[in-house]
Design a protein around this nucleic acid. Structure first.
Lengths: 206, 206, 206, 206
DNA sequence: TATGAATGAGTTTTCATTCAT
DNA sequence: TATGAATGAAAACTCATTCAT
């Protein structure tokens, strides 16, 4: 049983969170490489070396940032984690819309997309692997849903669930990246999200 | 009529191309920021300053690289530029498969995806804009195809062509990014591509 | 009323001054171009990048150096700034000797002459302009003295005060440059200074 | 007896002179350090390595330039080399005016002043020594004239000829440097020159 | 012989991280 | 504990000089 945190300890955790929050801004605005540690500490209003009481180094901060983000994504997926929850096509469509909406909410914080999806290959291999692991997880979830739908018989029998799961997940993250384009506004992002769900279920053919 | 190039001029262009080719490797392997100019010149087997006879600076080289790439992508799209070419759903499906296959061929050079899609927000705003402009172009093409299909009457009347075009293009580039994952092999990438086309036309619903 | 400086602020200003002082040595010994930033930081005993906490760049340091010097020169001239102070030829001769002695004292720090007069056209146009502006100021002062002497009637009526002022100022700085010659010792510099004053007032004709 | 030069030899010497002439422009405009070898070769219209057929290196070219200049200065002084030529004050004054005019003519080519007097301490010790040697020579000449005048009895008996010679030579070169100031025009330079001669003989006192 | 492409040593400058206060 | 001054390693870039054609 963990004892209650002392004031100082709570204060420390809070400052850590403030740093992470500032890092969201700065990493998103300038990109990881261009973002200076002092850019972040100045935004928080602390001295630059205080940063090192909370993180080992700049790379460590990025880890904290993406862990926070990935946890949130995974939570959304996990909230719907009963792969066999959808008994009918209607259930599944409703579930998919819930997920799409939830993910869209997260993605509406464009900083996250900029940091996580915008520089996948621009940091280092470890970073890449983390993002790919998240992709894998999403694909596994999606494949589970599709397999369930096949078993239940409400999906086409001829779909390759693994490949289709990748296509669906690719569409989710791909549209999120397109949504970074400043020429696209929030409404258009929502419309795109809905179009993606319709595409997924019904396709475009008459 | 441009006169024939002298030997020296051809030699110069050839070296320029060798540098660009090496940059494909190095930028893809290490990312733009981590790639040193000397990493590239060493791979070509030239002195570091020779580089500067061919490019103004490292950033200028990246421009040459992405221009090369974007030109190739656009050429693929432009090769199918008759938006009204597809008279029937079958035509359109065939056309889409051709494009998907061509893009997949390009994307099979994973270096391109790593450089162009892997660090969109990690370089600078100008780089971002170039990639987004390419996305816009692809979306405009796709929307044209869809509008044609609507007019011809072989597509569902209820689709939002703009939003659907974004969903389709997002799927294309999104699956390309997923394809960077080393756990995915070339066959799986092809399967994903086919699944994407099927998804697009028929959806998953029975 | 400016509040007292904190210890850290004083420390910072002191280090800045130490860098400037080292720059006097190094710029004088090696010339601006040949002087490396590390030559200066090593002399101060600091790391090379510490320099950049105090100056924007090497050129900025030169500005600080010459500003310091020009301020000193101007202070000497300004200390005698009452152009109409000399009522008689004797007064004026005494005043001229005072100025000559004061300038000679400054010029005895040969580093100053080496930096300021030794590379007038060797840095950039901005540097040139600053030195020329200082010359102009000296000429204006001198012309003021001469005009006063004409009015008071103790100078030859036929002198062209503007041209003569340039000749006098040219002599001052010209002899300072000759004084850089290592074959000339301090005594000879003083003698030259006195000869210059005598020349100025009496000429050489019997 | 040197045999006549072949065409090729004459051509080579001519090109050498063209390079020197271009160097006058470029060294004067940009200063020695900022002047690139290619700036000079481009002005001549030759390839950069052709330069090295005529000069060992960039520094060697500067030597050729200043040797040319110093030779010209010395020729002017040597043209008047009979130190005992002036039998009367009038003779000497006339001689001084001739020298002043001749030097002024040379100095009207401001490039020379910019190169030779503008960066005395900005190149290296050898350059400095050459300029100082030229100063010494001029001082020795001037001291010879003054000694002659003393002996002949047409100059003040109380002048320190060595120190006065330095003052006079300092005035000559000092006013030449002031003349670089773009606010001073050719007429003013001539007036300054005359004022300097008058100052030298008569001083300013009534 | 003349060329200009290639060279690499050298310099300035940046920034994540450490340390003295 | 918090600070920010100090650090030094690293990297882009320049240019006098050489070399292959």
């Amino acid at each position: 049983m963990s004892r209650a945190l002392s004031y100082a300890e709570r204060r420390k955790l809070q400052l850590r969170d403030e740093i992470i929050e500032a890092a969201f801004d700065v990493f998103a605005e300038r990109g990881y490489h261009d973002a200076g540690v002092t850019d972040i500490t100045e935004r928080v209003g602390i001295g630059s070396s205080t940063f090192y009481r909370h993180f080992d180094n700049k790379r460590d901060l990025l880890d904290a940032v993406i862990t926070t983000v990935i946890d949130r994504w995974v939570a959304v997926l996990a909230a719907e984690n009963a792969a066999d929850a959808a008994a009918t096509l209607g259930d599944y469509r409703a579930q998919s819309l819930r997920i799409a909406t939830a993910l869209n909410d997260i993605a509406s914080d464009l900083r996250i997309i900029r940091i996580l999806l915008g520089q996948i290959t621009g940091i280092d291999r470890e970073f890449e692997q983390k993002v790919f692991a998240m992709f894998d997880l999403a694909v596994a979830f999606e494949a589970g849903y599709l397999d369930n739908g096949l078993q239940r018989g409400y999906l086409r029998a001829d779909i390759d669930t693994a490949a289709t799961a990748r296509a669906v997940v690719g569409m989710i993250f791909g549209t999120a990246i397109l949504g970074l384009n400043p020429t696209i506004d929030a409404d258009e992002r929502t419309e795109t999200s809905h179009a993606a769900v319709q595409l997924m279920f019904d396709g475009i053919a008459k």
